[in-house]
């Protein structure tokens, strides 16, 4: 009878978790988004060093275009791989847990995005990598409540890298590549090995 009670409680716990958390995240999202970010950082390095042949006055516009393309490509890849997991598990992709995650991410990310534009307008572009990392890290910390808990550790790493990027602006792009590229790839591999094999 005792065994039965423990089994029942374990089953209740598993069901509650499956129902309340967004579990359609795939490690492949992290890996591919990380690669896109590294490519974007490489392009940005080229633009900043003048190797791309971007006219003097339009460096900011080129960087903005580069960042936007990275963002769109990453979002697309995350959606694609999440959909694949959802189909495989037979659960709806856009369930209430997904909505919680989306909202938890959206508020800090929008605030950070707007702040980046404000920094740009005030000639403080050197703070933008730090700002992106910080707000993204906080967004992940927030979203970690509604999905795999390990996401929160990734959030903390992004926050630390953001602070370092602010303290050492000369290496801003390197920290950015570390946060959005390398960290994502490492997290993606760990996630894939733990949950998808």
């Amino acid at each position: 009878m005792n065994e039965r009670g423990i089994d029942d409680i374990l089953a209740i716990r598993a069901m509650m978790e499956r129902a309340s958390k967004f579990l359609s995240f795939s490690g492949l999202s992290g890996i591919s988004a990380g690669i896109v970010a590294l490519a974007g950082a490489w392009v940005a390095g080229g633009i900043l060093s003048g190797a791309s042949g971007a006219p003097e006055g339009s460096v900011a516009a080129y960087l903005f275009l580069d960042a936007s393309l990275v963002l769109l490509a990453s979002l697309g890849l995350v959606l694609y791989f999440s959909r694949r997991v959802a189909v495989k598990k037979g659960i709806p992709l856009w369930g209430s847990a997904a909505r919680y995650v989306a909202f938890a991410l959206a508020v800090p990310l929008l605030a950070g995005g707007v702040l980046c534009l404000v920094l740009m307008a005030h000639g403080l572009a050197w703070l933008i990598p730090a700002c992106m990392l910080l707000f993204y890290g906080l967004a992940l910390l927030n979203a970690g409540n509604f999905t795999f808990g390990e996401i929160r550790a990734l959030g903390v790493i992004e926050v630390v890298l953001g602070l370092l990027a602010a303290a050492l602006p000369a290496y801003g792009l390197w920290f950015w590549a570390g946060g959005f590229g390398l960290s994502h790839i490492c997290y993606g591999i760990l996630h894939y090995r733990k949950y998808e094999r």
């Binding site: 089953a11 069901m15 659960i91």
Partner: peptide, 25 residues
């Protein structure tokens, strides 16, 4: 076990539709 599962799912969200319940359970 299935009724226990239904109760567990509904305990952590306001409501769930048939398809969601079917997928989770």
């Amino acid at each position: 076990r299935i009724r226990l599962g239904i109760m567990s799912v509904l305990a952590v969200r306001e409501a769930a539709d048939f398809t969601t319940l079917k997928g989770v359970l």
